[in-house]
């Protein structure tokens, strides 16, 4: 699951429309739910670099780039 770097996220919501799974909500700050398929598209679109690939645990999704 993609991780939100809380101190960077400004709550602009621009990640919300990007997620193909509808897994991101943003109400003051972005939150990613369990529907995240780790496609990592949102990482590219975040203007402040507040979304990170979660390397802890069992990250098994596909990678871009």
């Amino acid at each position: 699951m993609v991780k939100v770097v809380e101190e960077r996220c400004v709550g602009c919501s621009l990640c919300v429309p990007v997620c193909p799974e509808g897994a991101i909500s943003c109400y003051g700050r972005a939150e990613v739910n369990e529907n995240c398929s780790e496609c990592l598209l949102c990482l590219d679109f975040c203007p402040v670099g507040a979304l990170k690939e979660n390397n802890e645990g069992e990250g098994h999704g596909k990678k871009t780039g």
Binding site: R8, V10, G11, C12, S13, V16, P17, G28, V48
Partner: peptide, 10 residues
Amino acid sequence: LMTGIYHGDW
């Protein structure tokens, strides 16, 4: 649809 806050680095 969206609630966007523009502050900080954006």
